[in-house]
Design a binder for these strands. Sequence first.
DNA 1: CTGAAAGCGCTTACAG
DNA 2: CTGAAAGCGCTTACAG
Lengths: 342, 342
Amino acid sequence: MSLSHRPRAVTIDDVAEKAGVSAKTVSRVLNNEPNVRDTKRKIVMEASRALGYRPNPAARSLAGSKSFLLAHLHDNPVPEYVAATNEGIYTACRDNGYFLLPQRIEPDAADGLDRLQAFLFTARPDAVILTPPLCDNEQVISILEHAGVPHASLSAAQSTSARHVLRHDEHLAARKLVEHLIHQGHRDIAMIAGPEGHKAASARFDGYMNALELAGIHPETTLVEHGDYTMRSGLEAAQRLLARAKRPTAIFAANDDMAVGALTASLALGLRIPEDISIAGYDDTRLASAVWPPLTTIRQPVSEMACRAAERLMQPDDNQPREEVLAFDLIVRASTGPVPTS
Amino acid sequence: MSLSHRPRAVTIDDVAEKAGVSAKTVSRVLNNEPNVRDTKRKIVMEASRALGYRPNPAARSLAGSKSFLLAHLHDNPVPEYVAATNEGIYTACRDNGYFLLPQRIEPDAADGLDRLQAFLFTARPDAVILTPPLCDNEQVISILEHAGVPHASLSAAQSTSARHVLRHDEHLAARKLVEHLIHQGHRDIAMIAGPEGHKAASARFDGYMNALELAGIHPETTLVEHGDYTMRSGLEAAQRLLARAKRPTAIFAANDDMAVGALTASLALGLRIPEDISIAGYDDTRLASAVWPPLTTIRQPVSEMACRAAERLMQPDDNQPREEVLAFDLIVRASTGPVPTS
DNA sequence: CTGAAAGCGCTTACAG
DNA sequence: CTGAAAGCGCTTACAG
């Protein structure tokens, strides 16, 4: 079972010999470099295929000082989000001969940033993709820039011309969702927003406020509570909202987990959903369609953003804008309905 | 931002020069090889640390014909399970100087097995960890064995002396859970089992049957329905069970997703949980504590199994048995309660 | 216990 | 458009 049982691997010299060319020519063909006659190119391709040649990545890395590794640095508590991102990056990597190295980084742990440093110097990825909340961590960004590692971010709160950012329009998405509630007759719409003072959380909140304003609804600040994206925080925020003298008829939570917390709090109080209260989330996680009733929510194009981010890093093109905005979907399910008429 | 901006990296020769020894001695020290005087060992360690030396993995791989890559091949629809496995493997890798390369393999896709082949030959992992359901796929195992890649499995349905298997006792866990229901007075306990004829699913079913037999309850086969581990299948199985003339007072589903389906089906029929019916799952996923009421379930030691599996592959020891059984936990939550007295 | 030489399999830099 | 030589930074195999 040891590696020595493997037959000697086919090398570039084997291919060169079979094709009757130099190793350098084989290298040119396999790396899609110019300056090779088409006839030779064909011969090399066939020899390579016939022998089942697979370039040795270690040799390529050593000689070319590229690792062919694309790292995905993440610190997101929702495994689905990480998985969807990995899937998108992986698709792009496969088509470009790269490998995906997903790596959890905990910048708030005692040695979290040291580990990031160590990771960059030991694994030596050619580029890095950052997902929230890591992409908004200035220390992380700073370490990457000092190390000279190109990077791209998904849904970064602030975009600069210096880096690639792939996003969807969270402000618009939140507005569309709240407008959906308004169309159903709701006026007293509460929001469970993300952490206060959290840049990344503000777009969804602003979209909510914007929708209310556009509908001529006086935005009552008392209908806003904050959570930290966990179910528990959503449950507690909803309990505070539902204890108000003027109970909201709809709650929009900034993510599905908090929405599920609100759902749970409502059910525990004996409220029917959506007859007594409508609840909506954001992200369209598995949870959203698992709970009863299933949640109205926003689906963001996670895999597509990740795929595009990876392509940008592997195929640099200085002419394109650094920011790219992809489409989202409003998913309407049974957790929202017409406002109670009573 | 290009890699050329990075300062020239410290090499083994720099360390050797600073320490006043040969590169070979530095190599010995850093790889924990024997036959180095302690004084020299110390000097080398210090020189290495002072220079911030990081061995170049590409060079190590090329010279030593090891990739220092441990692959996790998975095809599990539950991202949490994959994430928990990755976390365990990662911990072990970090302590042993390896990198974790998670890779989704879809053996049923048209080119799924070809891609597995390609992955093994291009990424060249030194070893592979398989998780369900991939670890029970004979074609996958066969490809690994032909390629001569050592591997370990988590929770494989069948264990042989030829490979490492890390597991928990699913039969016992299922039995304990059903015994808990029996202690609460339930007699009409239904099960939503995994796919029929599915080896990996049988242990949980056998545990259920065993518990009934030990309690002197005649196991009524009509109280068993099958699902495919999705929420939808759990919902449909529960609908069939709840439509029976003799409605069960408790339902044990072979995983949390199907249990949530059963929960949803029950709530949709206006049943109260656990007052009218108790429901239990298996796996303790995020879903289990997200739904209302939260699910009684079994927590299996996923990360620990993954960590142990990785350690076994990186630190081979032919004297230890190939199979290792770790502990599980029965988690009792509000979805189960005393049998209805009516 | 230690080290000098060769080599892993590619790409880079150069020459033609 | 093509190739011979050198070199990437380690470990292996060997010698002492």
